[in-house]
Design a protein around this nucleic acid. Structure first.
Lengths: 218, 218
DNA sequence: AAGTGGAAAATTGTATACAAAATAGTTGAC
DNA sequence: GTCAACTATTTTGTATACAATTTTCCACTT
């Protein structure tokens, strides 16, 4: 294993946690991981702090660093907040959005649709992310944009899970089109409501998915 | 100077930054501060990470850690987001709030008013914080509550500044009463709008305050 | 004279050694 | 036999030494 930097370590650890190698609540052993990555404990602690910033792990003084995979309840709550934040973006963007951005959203949407046709999940995911990123930017509120990106990233693995649900992709696409349409008309409340519903439904779908998995495990 | 722990160092640094000892954009010299606190660089770096978590400083790899006091524009943006988050709390709380919590809010409000009468700024500030904390809790969304507390804390010094504005305290009190009243009736949209306005006005007041200070400095 | 190259200084990142704290395990008393 | 206290072990927190990177400054070339 090649020599790592703390940046890479944080990234790799993120992958391991999201990949399910470390179970939620598990303590991340510093010496063990230091040995695994062939580095000392110091950069590992740095990496832990970075993961704590994105909320993936929790550090308790004199106790250790623990995997903080959110449970179903907290996840629903996070989707609820995400829905509100995106709705706010939409409300603000409806008044401020530029024609260029509207065109960009339409183009992104088109590429998104193409990805759906080609069953290209990664492509869909990428374009979908771009669609939302444009919306955040067009809110005109840089702080709001940052908070949205942060939460969006944190929900990333859970959004990804539900892409497998049949028919969800196409439904999501038509929702995107309705959003663009409302933004173009400058209908703030309508756009906000469309976004709220668009994100909220993801939380619900996820809930169903989780319930299904739980049932299957029993 | 006594021996410090990284927790205390983070706290003390926070005070120094908020107290204006370190100017925004300034680089925090590790060796210099390590010498000042009579500790090594290691716990200082830990403290930096903690401050980065609350957004007070920014760490740039191989460049250093910089004071990240937000400018007027970002501050307005933050108040805008805070207003939306609190409005969401209100909307959710309107349906879920318990009678005990309503009584608690009224009692807190009463103590708040007493503090105003006694010109007890610290007391007012404390009770006001409690008022909002109850609201966050009553949203029933633990994640939302956490995000609100985080942002509220970050805006703390700026809220505090505007308490000096004449008449603002009493106005704020009557807004609180209107909020409680709307919550009691279960009027979600009304409560949300009341909160949004209540917080947004703080952002505006702050804006005026900053403009005044800037003018006075010229 | 201005711009580029490189060497030296300053500063951040990492490794190792040591200290402090928490947990676990064991012995003793009741 | 159970609970409590003490010791031993494990684990986190800190100090110091060293490596790597960035920046600065000076010399040299065009």
């Amino acid at each position: 294993m090649e020599r790592k930097r703390s940046d890479n370590i944080a990234e790799e650890l993120e992958g391991l946690i999201l990949g399910g190698v470390f179970t939620p609540g598990e303590r991340l052993d510093e010496v063990q991981l230091a040995d695994r990555f062939a580095v000392s404990r110091t950069p590992l602690r740095e990496a832990f702090h970075r993961l704590a910033l994105s909320g993936l792990v929790e550090h308790i003084p004199h106790r250790g660093t623990f995997v903080r995979q959110p449970g179903p309840v907290e996840l629903i709550e996070m989707f609820e907040v995400m829905a509100e934040l995106e709705a706010t973006c939409a409300r603000l963007a409806a008044a401020r959005i530029t024609d260029e951005a509207l065109d960009d959203m339409r183009a992104t949407n088109a590429r998104c649709l193409a990805a759906v046709e080609a069953a290209d999940h990664d492509g869909y995911y990428h374009e979908n992310e771009r669609f939302h990123a444009i919306l955040y930017r067009q809110s005109g509120n840089g702080f709001l944009e940052g908070e949205c990106l942060r939460l969006h990233k944190r929900l990333m693995p859970f959004r990804r899970m539900q892409l497998r649900l049949r028919g969800r992709l196409r439904q999501s696409m038509s929702e995107h089109e309705a959003i663009v349409e409302a933004l173009q008309r400058g209908a703030a409340d309508e756009a906000a409501e469309a976004l709220r519903a668009h994100v909220a439904v993801q939380g619900e779908k996820f809930h169903h998915l989780m319930a299904g998995l739980k049932q299957a495990a029993e």
